[in-house]
Design a binder for these strands. Structure first.
Lengths: 381, 381
DNA sequence: CTGTTAGCGCGTTCAA
DNA sequence: TTGAACGCGCTAACAG
């Protein structure tokens, strides 16, 4: 910039004015400065500009995996909005590691971004306290943040699950299995609770023996699938106390952390399914769980993919709905019916929350729910 | 930092020493400073540090679409390596728009990153001349850059195509159709040339009427598929001069830009396929193209996906190999055989090129080819 | 319309 | 072992 000023025979500030398109520069001077800029290949240094002006023009985004299609799609939406506003975005992955979340988030914050978009994995984000205190706007996506003031954008898990259950019940299914993630995961809890509540709305008492919650491993899913699909009433009842030596063994229910359950809905103790469209299930004894499920709800894309992989080896193929859309889901046979999250909507909502907070930093924490969409392709008839 | 110094009762420089872990600080002083840092929630400002020291600790990456699984996977590999080295990465998409490539790349460069990784879409990257001149290391991925000095990381397109053709021919296919992208695209040219050369290696004279090169549109692909699969010799020959009003009409050959062809291979003019394992193809007249293809090579993932979508409506289902792996490719029936690119390898190779160039900025431009892998899943038997 | 001065937060140089 | 002064490239706040 100094060189440009010298070359054009003007003062530093004049160059600054030209570079920033500020008014109050004579046409002759302007031309001379612009020419000098081109000749010297001058480019403004944004770092210095930021240091002086405070405005960063940079957004930080920390997700669990930038190669995960869900987060990649959110990232794209964020980046498009940011680009429109002349901002660039730094992006990083936690790879499900709380320690790494901290490292990446703090490395980003050291660059003093205008805002931080974060898909939490750690139990608490209190390590961000100094930055939030200093005015950094944070918006949590997919899961809420804890320990700091942050806006939140979440999918409407309850609505999505309910639509799926409605669809299955509408097609005559009464004995519906559920494969969800480990209940330490916020969305896993929210979804399984929604599942129970959605069943209850149809007068179906949720059968806990048909609900499997665990981190998705091939072995665990194989075991659950086998029990849910192949076995008669006995096998399903034999689940608690999973066999020793089985890694990632599945739990019948949720660590007690699924506490906020379908409160006020379906009070009585489980008395088995109402009747069941199931054909081969012998009329069970009193509180004994039902026989093989006729339908399956898989509560995230990793579980869905693994189930699809294993289904051919199973005694029968149930109706299936997966949470999260999958690429090529329309190409498998039958087409996979899914509860699709609106990644673009989530990204845009996050940017809007940031906009309004930038305008008024003293806003309270807000939570936005983005609708999901049931995409019917045939696998759930 | 000033506040920390005041709180600890030391000079600015001492705080700087503590923050950077420099030696020469008394244990008592160190403790006092560290306490002050925690109490005040002090965080070093990387922007200011960069301004002073020159080192940015930031990498810029510009791809065509960060939500494209291929680039997302490269991005992940880059980010993991960068994280190990204490760097953060800015990422942005061009969305196939040359103007936007320029905008995004220059916006990144204004932040003075340590290096730029770029998947070119524009014809020339000469707009980056000032930054390259100033010492910015650039590495082009997926396609070469033009107009600047840059290292390049490319997939071994030739080897991948050859493996695919070998596989098809090994299974008795002689009449192989090819659907590729518009030959303005570098990889499209390279791949179709490799296709011709690979056929020639088997003594098969490439039949240009079976090679369709165009930007992938559903309509264009439908048309090509219909002609390649359904029609007898006549229809295939009737391709040139595509019907008016058909957007994205397909061209029989490559704009002349596919010039570097299989030089030295297969000289003579096309005289039609040698014989053909094809069953229903009537013995054609002299130089007339063959009947329906028995196998199909789709030269990128967008084309492959669209073909898979349309195949059920076609007269018969050919053997199929796609360039680029697809998520769930193992779940469709039959499993899709693909030429998989090594996205992680590309990302890592890019980082290695940067490492060596940082060590010696005067290196000449280098080009690295990353092997592809043929994943056999059954669709190409 | 144009120029001068100061300082953003830090690292570097040299002196104490 | 510690500290004071200077400047990285730029913009804000004032002069002329």
């Amino acid at each position: 910039m100094k060189d440009v000023a010298a070359q054009a025979g003007v003062a530093l500030k004049t160059v600054s004015r030209v570079v920033n398109g500020e008014p109050g520069v004579g046409p002759g001077t302007l031309a001379r400065v612009e020419q000098a800029i081109v000749e010297l290949g001058y480019r403004r240094n944004e770092s210095a500009r930021q240091l002086r002006s405070g405005r960063a023009g940079t957004l930080a985004m920390v997700v669990r995996d930038i190669a995960d299609p869900f987060f990649a799609a959110i990232g794209r939406a964020v980046e498009m909005t940011a680009h429109r506003d002349g901002q660039v975005v730094m992006i990083g992955s936690t790879h499900e590691d709380p320690k790494r979340e901290r490292e990446v988030a703090l490395a980003f914050c050291a660059r003093r971004p205008d805002a931080l978009i974060l898909a939490p994995i750690a139990d608490s984000q209190d390590y961000l306290h100094p930055e939030v205190e200093a005015g950094l706007p944070v918006v949590a996506i997919d899961r809420p943040a804890h320990g700091i003031l942050a806006d939140t954008v979440l999918s409407d898990n309850v609505g999505g699950i309910r639509a799926a259950v409605d669809h299955l019940v509408g097609h005559g299914h009464r004995v519906i299995g559920y494969l969800g993630d480990d209940p330490v995961v916020y969305t896993a809890r929210e979804r399984v609770d929604a599942f129970r509540a959605a069943l209850a709305r149809h007068g179906i008492v949720p059968d806990e023996s048909l609900i499997r919650l665990a981190a998705p491993t091939p072995e665990g899913i194989a075991r659950s699938l086998g029990e849910l699909l192949g076995a008669g009433p006995g096998a399903a009842g034999a689940v608690p106390g999973a066999g020793p030596g089985v890694p990632g063994a599945l739990h019948g229910t949720g660590h007690g952390s699924a506490a906020l359950s379908g409160a006020g809905l379906a009070s009585g103790e489980p008395t088995g399914p109402m009747s069941g469209a199931g054909t081969e299930a012998p009329a069970g004894v009193a509180p004994v769980p039902a026989g093989p499920v006729t339908a399956l709800l898989t509560a995230n894309n990793r579980i869905t993919a693994e189930v699809l992989r294993q289904l051919p080896g199973m005694p029968h193929r149930p109706a299936l709905i997966g949470f999260d859309d999958l690429e090529l889901a329309d190409l498998i046979t039958p087409g996979l019916t899914v509860i699709a999250q609106d990644a673009e909507g989530i990204g845009r909502a996050a940017m809007e929350l940031l906009d309004t907070r930038l305008a008024d930093p003293r806003l309270p924490a807000r939570e936005v729910r983005i609708p999901t969409r049931l995409i019917v392709r045939g696998s759930a008839e």
